[in-house]
Design a protein around this nucleic acid. Structure first.
Length: 219
DNA sequence: ACCCAGGTGGCCC
DNA sequence: GGGCCACATGGG
């Protein structure tokens, strides 16, 4: 079996199904993705709760809210000078593009939607792919810093380039929405549990795949 | 008092 | 095209 599949099954066996991303609606996924940059999920969740309590977890409501009001609610998620504008502008774009109808917005070929997402401020490859995968029902392999850390530690690749790493997995795995959703969630679970910057290798399900004795970089 | 967190965009060369 | 850097809060 390819190591990419082997790793998936080992992580699933260890951590179990993760049932991710934690959100009630596709729009909530989008808001979370935009707030998540370089921020602990705990703070993102609090910001989302604030928005929800204020009735702002809605495309039209957020599109017409003022920046200071949005900022008040999302400040806990940090980067508060950039995130409120990105949130509002993204909502304005959704309205202009599809009248705020997310079903219609995502109902195009994956590459077309991805390009449209990437055209928005604050949406880079990871944010675009997390929205496609967890809100849009599109099967893309989502890469993040954890994916790269773990992939390098177990020697799948040396690259830290997003597109290269994504192609690495995509070329070795079946294109399956549920599996892609679960794989990413499992990598996050593993990174948080054991595969930290300072790894805890005891009882690691991937221990035999790692090789810390070589010159390989394990950032 | 550090360092890190489920990135991105703007510089600079 | 690759290599830095600021961005900002809250928790370990």
């Amino acid at each position: 079996m390819d190591r990419e599949r082997e790793i998936y099954h080992r992580l699933l066996g260890r951590y179990g199904p993760q049932d991710w991303w934690p959100a009630e609606t596709p729009f909530e996924v989008i808001v979370g993705a935009l707030l998540m940059h370089q921020t602990a999920w705990r703070n993102v969740a609090e910001a989302i709760r604030n928005l929800k309590a204020a009735g702002l977890l809605d495309v039209r409501a957020l599109a017409s809210a003022s920046i200071p009001v949005i900022r008040k609610h999302v400040k806990v998620a940090g980067l508060y000078r950039t995130k409120p504008t990105r949130l509002r502008d993204f909502c304005l774009h959704l309205l202009a593009r599809s009248g705020g109808d997310l079903r219609g917005y995502f109902d195009r070929p994956l590459e077309a939607v991805r390009d449209d997402l990437l055209s928005q401020a604050g949406v880079g490859p990871e944010t675009a792919d997390s929205i496609l995968l967890y809100a849009g029902g599109h099967a893309v392999f989502l890469v993040d810093a954890y994916t790269i850390r773990i992939g390098r530690r177990v020697g799948l690749f040396d690259s830290d380039d997003y597109d290269q790493v994504q192609r690495h997995f995509a070329a070795r795995l079946p294109r399956d929405l549920g599996m892609f959703q679960e794989y990413h969630a499992l990598l996050v679970a593993h990174a948080k549990a054991l595969c930290r910057p300072a790894p805890r290798c005891e009882a690691c399900p991937l221990q035999d795949l790692c090789d810390f004795g070589t010159a390989r970089v394990h950032g």
